[in-house]
Amino acid sequence: MSGIVCAIRGGPSSQSTIEKAIELALEYSLPIYFVYVVNLDFMAHSSSSRVHMISQELEHLGEFILLNAKSKAEKMGVAAEGIIRHGEVGNEIIEVSREYDANFVILGQPRRKGEEDFFSDKRLKVFASNIEEKTNAKAVLTEVNQNNEA
């Protein structure tokens, strides 16, 4: 297997990531594996034991986001698959890249400083080199606009 792993989490910030993955897929005739990782770190400070239930709900939400991305790729004539994973975002992206022997891993790079999370600028560059060390894939960073305030 080979192809392009594209990690998305929905929202406008994922659109340019999806577009970049489609562009590369057309150029190299590769399928895209869209990955959505269910991560429950945000529950760490909430006094709720509903981890199992919210994990399921986020999985459904992830399926919905992946369906959107897949249909966008398929409209452009690119074969696409959606993959849901649970756990730490970085580890899961590396795992999927290894499993699918990915040629490229597309990651969204924020254009402006947002909240400190996995996809923040500084951490993303470290992660990109980590991917290239641990897998056969080339990490591709795409600039995304995070301005999606209501």
Partner: peptide, 13 residues
């Protein structure tokens, strides 16, 4: 906080 957590995890921080 939990609403923001879910929203953030699907790309709408």
């Amino acid at each position: 906080m939990v609403t923001a957590g879910i929203s953030n995890s699907v790309g709408y921080p």
